[in-house]
Structure formats: C-alpha cells, structure tokens
C-alpha cells in the first residue's frame, strides 16, 4: 500500500480510490474504496463503500456508508446509515440515524438516538438508548439506560440498569446491581403519536430471569426474579420471586410463588 500520509482525498461526484493512509477523507458524491483505509478524519455526505477495514480518529457519516471490514474509531457519529460487516470499536459512538453491525460492538460511550442492530456482543461503559436497539448476543455495560425499545437475545449485564419501557422490550436474562424498570410517564408529542398507531402494543418487558441487588420492576413479565431488596410495581406477571432482605408487591401484580432466602 502506498503511504500517502498528510494527504487528503476528496471525492465529489463519483470516484474510486485504492485505500491507504490519509489525513482527511471526504466524500460528497459516491465513492468506492478498494482496500483498507487509515485516516485522521472521515466524512461522508453521499455514499461510500469500503472494501476493507477503516481506522480513523473521527468519522462522520451523514449519508450512507457500507464497510466490509472492521472499524476502529475514536469518535464516530452516524446521522445517516452505516452498515458494518465486521466489528466496530469506537470510544464515543453516536447513532442518530441507523446502523447495523454484523460483528461485535466495543466502546466506552454509546449513544443511540435512532436505531441500531448488532449481531454480536456489545460491551462498553455507558449505553444510552433513546430509540431502538437490537442485540443478538450479550450486552455488558457499567450503566445501561434505555428510554425506548430494545431486544437483547442474550444477557443484559450492567451495574446500573435504568429502563423506561416503550412497546414490547425483551431480554433473555438481566443481571446487575441496581435495576429499575418503569413505564414511560410523559406521554407527550411523539410518543403519543407512536402509541396512537401502535395502540395494541402495550409497554412491557419480557425476560426469563432477572437477578440483581436492588430491583424495582413495573410491567415486567418474568419467570424468575431474584434479589436482595425487591419492589414490584403495577402490571407485573412473575412466576417466582426469591428475595433476601425485603419484598414489596403492588396489589395489581400477579406473583406465582415467593420465597425468602
């Protein structure tokens, strides 16, 4: 690969490049990059297709980008759409449009305001979802905050889990220290509109197992809930609750069996 550090590529219109090392890569039309790309700054306002891996300090995708390999970025903002066939390593990721990752997603701070889907596992320090996220594997974080819709096929494992439900949320297993699941309270504007169209979808969380130190659950359907201090709010259907220190149950909730350990 030719080393062309400190050089820039700018493609306006339609163009092809062979990849390499650059300072700044800007795509305003449509670009096809045939190899691995290393740069300081990547910006795509049109459409870009990269047939390899990309390593960059910052990436901003306003149009649509398809990457056949892995991405390693310090900072990445997706306002349009991004499809990544490999893994995505990104310290600070902000998805305001849509993104799909076929591999794993690793990072420090992940903010999702649009929609994101990950086929592999997600691990990072903070996940903040106000939109929709689908994860086929496990999701590990120190803090997981979701005001929206999520579906996790594996384990959701986080220190602090703070969920405001929108429509039908799902996780196979949930584990952590502090877990709070609440129904969205402010039904204003946009959410009201969604609810109007999706009137037959109730806000609800379904999980097989939920385990943690301090739990507060509303509108949760689960097989087993285990914890130290458990407070169960309205609208839950839980087959079995095991608790160590305390258990409070709302009247409108159905619990199959409860046991103090």
């Amino acid at each position: 690969m030719e080393k062309t550090a400190n050089k820039n590529i700018s493609i306006s219109g339609s163009g092809t490049s062979s990849g390499g090392e650059y300072n700044q890569v800007k795509v305003n039309g449509s670009a096809h990059i045939n190899g691995d790309l290393t740069c300081e700054e990547f910006k795509c306002n049109g459409s870009a297709h990269i047939e390899g891996n990309m390593t960059t300090e910052t990436a901003k995708i306003n149009g649509s980008t398809h990457i056949e390999g892995d991405i390693d970025a310090k900072e990445m903002t997706i306002n349009g759409s991004a499809d990544i066939d490999g893994n995505l390593f990104c310290k600070e990721l902000k998805v305001q449009g849509s993104s799909s990752v076929k591999g794993d997603l690793k990072g420090k701070e992940i903010i999702i305001r649009g929609s994101a889907s990950v086929q592999g596992n997600v691990s990072c320090e903070e996940v903040d979802v106000k939109g929709q996220v689908k994860i086929k594997g496990d999701c590990e974080a120190e803090s997981f905050e979701a005001h929206g819709n999520f579906k996790i096929d594996g384990l959701l494992n986080a220190g602090t889990i703070d969920i405001e439900l929108l429509r039908h949320c799902e996780a196979k297993e949930i584990g952590g220290e502090n877990i709070s699941v609440k129904k969205t309270r402010d039904s204003s504007g946009f959410k009201k509109l969604i609810k109007f169209f999706m009137s037959n979808h109730n806000d609800q969380l379904t999980a097989e197992v939920i385990e943690g130190d301090h739990l507060y659950l509303e509108h949760t359907h689960a097989e087993i809930v285990r914890g130290n201090t458990i407070e169960i709010g309205p609208g839950c259907v839980i087959k079995r609750v095991e608790y160590k220190t305390s258990l409070e149950v709302n009247e409108s909730t159905k619990i199959g069996a409860q046991e103090k350990i």
Binding site: S123, E140, E142, N157, A158, G159, G175, G176, E177, N178, E211, G212, D213, R226, G227, N228, E242, I261
Partner: peptide, 21 residues
Amino acid sequence: SKKDLLEAANISYGQLYRWKR
C-alpha cells in the same frame, strides 16, 4: 448452583455480575 454459591461465598448477585463483566 448460583444460589448456593452466593450463600457459600457470601456475595451478592450484583458482585457476581460485576466480576463476570
């Protein structure tokens, strides 16, 4: 089992999940 382990080792679910993480 997980339940017996937590009791035998005197740790909480939160600690176990944190260590796994």
